[in-house]
Design a protein around this nucleic acid. Structure first.
Lengths: 202, 202
DNA sequence: CTCGTTCCGATGCGCTTGCATCGGAACAGT
DNA sequence: ACTGTTCCGATGCAAGCGCATCGGAACGAG
């Protein structure tokens, strides 16, 4: 048997390097050479781990996606005693990557999402991550409302889109994280208001 | 005097070519040569119009941004008789670029926004476009609500972020344009409901 | 120790990139 | 017709790209 190398850890290491570079210069700034340098491995090692650049990007994207969804789940599991409303709020804040220390992750995610709109392979991964988050939100919404929300899926889609948009606007410097949190919170508050069409309309 | 060339129209022609390519392959697929070919001019012409590639991208981004804001304004001006609620709805739908024929524009915008998070020059342009749209929304919200909305700016930010997020999710194939419209519409309906905290909360 | 196998660093190839250069085409004024 | 000015197509260049190749290092089994 030949020498033992932990491929998985190396792949993760490379994925982290991809994220670092994508955060600094965007996805187009990610080249095999620079990735290898950042991961402190040779180009040959990178090529052994991933047959093509796209394969590497897909892996890195999956890696980030899992890190995010895992963190969201963990945060949820860590405080099961809170009210459903608070859980939902914390979950959404986590999804929005508003914390300062996750800003880089948010930039990377945004870069990947944009590319995912034109690269099918990336699109599948991105959709997978969102599907997972949505399922989680659906569950939270159902648990949190009494009587149960009539369309938790629709509500989850709305919240997910809002969180995403807020992240983007924070990233381009148009919104402060605090403002984004406020908006998210206000939106959640309305979740517990019954619909009353026909009032105060011009 | 030398031969007369309409620089502005050529610049716009080149900007359109940039958008076409960005739509197909993302921003990294935009190269000077391909742009020149798509615009059916020589590379020399492109270089004469824009000193650097970044200058070209900034111009193209500005071009798209103006096209979008202009269209939104036009749609608003074209039907001043409608109720404020309807105007707001149409405006937001336009901002979200949900119409099939604007899908390409949406992809281009998303690509630029993602890059804007790491390229200051692009960031300024993107922020400018959003500022304009926000001002417009603030005005519409103020006009549409009675009594006047207490924080129209915050509301405008929320709507803008939601519209943006919805656009993104439509682009990656997670939401149908119809679903996005529904979410937008429901969100608008709630604009006319008074806040009633404390009800039906678990 | 000697294989047999697995791994990878170095190197190079073919191509593309953004950008600089420049000779000459295209005109307006005289 | 000549000149002066403005423009641009073609070409070249250094750098960087993704990827293929391969000799030898590293190690376990016998």
């Amino acid at each position: 048997m030949p020498r033992r190398i932990d491929h998985d850890s190396r792949r993760r290491r490379i994925a982290d390097a991809v994220c670092l570079l994508a955060d600094e210069r965007g996805l187009e700034g990610v080249t095999l050479r620079d990735v290898a340098a950042r991961a402190e491995v040779s180009m040959g090692a990178v090529q052994r781990c991933f047959r093509t650049k796209e394969e590497m990007l897909v892996f890195a994207l999956t890696h980030v996606g899992e890190r995010i969804t895992d963190r969201v789940r963990a945060r949820l599991a860590a405080s099961p005693t809170r009210s459903a409303r608070v859980s939902l709020g914390h979950t959404l804040a986590e999804v929005s990557l508003l914390a300062e220390e996750h800003r880089a992750e948010a930039r990377v995610w945004l870069a990947f999402v944009a590319q995912a709109a034109v690269t099918p392979a990336l699109g599948r991964v991105v959709r997978g991550a969102y599907d997972e988050l949505r399922a989680l939100l659906v569950r939270l919404i159902t648990e949190a409302t009494d009587p149960p929300h009539p369309r938790p899926e629709r509500e989850a889609d709305a919240l997910l889109a809002l969180a995403d948009g807020l992240t983007t606007h924070v990233l381009i410097g148009r919104l402060s994280p605090e403002a984004a949190l406020e908006i998210l919170d206000e939106r959640l508050t309305r979740l517990w208001e019954p619909e009353r069409p026909g009032t105060r309309r011009r």
